[in-house]
Design a protein around this nucleic acid. Structure first.
Lengths: 144, 144
DNA sequence: GTAACAAATTCGCAGGACGAACTACTGCTT
DNA sequence: AAGCAGTAGTTCGTCCTGCGAATTTGTTAC
């Protein structure tokens, strides 16, 4: 079981990284875009969600901002804070990247029967729930 | 299902990285040690197994060698090639790290019933098999 | 024996991650 | 109201990762 979890994680990672690369993103930038899809976040929140130190985030957001994918906006209620949001271009790219990545991940279970896929989904959902994984890759309300 | 796979991969990654860190390793160095546990490899084989470019590997092995964890030995049959093997210290550390990491990964399904755990293991094994994942984290013949 | 190929390394570059130190602001407490 | 503890983010320095292109050395096939 351990080996299965580790190796499938490895696999998913590779797929994710490949997909990101084809959209001109790194894995981390892709992750950032996906997290920001539903709504903007503050830097600290982002750090908690992505499991990164504050200082690591500054750089990641800097680079993504430089590439015109995200934008820092002042927080209206706290002048120290900042809200990081997708730009229009960032939103478009996030959407495309997200869709394509989902497609590829789905392909990993191409040979599965529908009920197997469902069983796997249910078990993984429990793992995720039991361990309070932050929403790094939201359930979309938007199959397309 | 996609979200489950991605998020559990994220989770496993975080656990892996944490565990590595506590042993003074990076995730990649930990991965390298685990791959080398059963036997030595050549650089190219390692690259294929870990999904890294040759040039990335040189550095990783350099750093691990500098830390006294692995060792380059000449390949008896091909004087261009090199066999990368664990040092004694590397083997000991690999063993400890591997054991502890397994323990932590297992804990992720702490609340599972035995048959659920088995079901998950079987499904993940299929994902791994269907997609030809290299042996980055071998089934141990050695539960201890 | 030479031409094609293969195994590694080197180099330069950019991204990623961290901790420690710092700035600027908030919000308490008294 | 003044002062102070705590919080949000950034900066800095350091090391690790990862890649491609170019290079060196050795192998093998012809």
């Amino acid at each position: 079981m351990v080996a299965g979890l580790v190796r499938s994680a490895f696999l998913v990672d590779a797929v994710y990284a490949d997909s990101a690369r084809e959209y001109g993103l790194t894995q981390q930038q892709g992750q950032l875009l996906c997290v920001l899809m539903p709504q903007p976040y503050g830097m600290s929140e982002l750090g908690a969600t992505l499991g990164l130190a504050k200082s690591s985030l500054t750089g990641l957001v800097d680079r993504s901002e430089r590439n015109g994918l995200v934008q820092r906006k002042p927080d209206p209620h706290d002048s120290r804070a900042v809200r990081v949001a997708l730009t229009r271009r960032g939103a478009k790219l996030a959407d495309e990247f997200y869709t394509e990545t989902c497609r590829r991940i789905e392909e990993l279970t191409a040979e599965f029967a529908p009920e197997e896929r469902a069983a796997l989904a249910a078990l993984l959902a429990r793992v995720v729930a039991d361990n309070k994984v932050p929403s790094v890759f939201m359930e979309p309300d938007l199959p397309r």
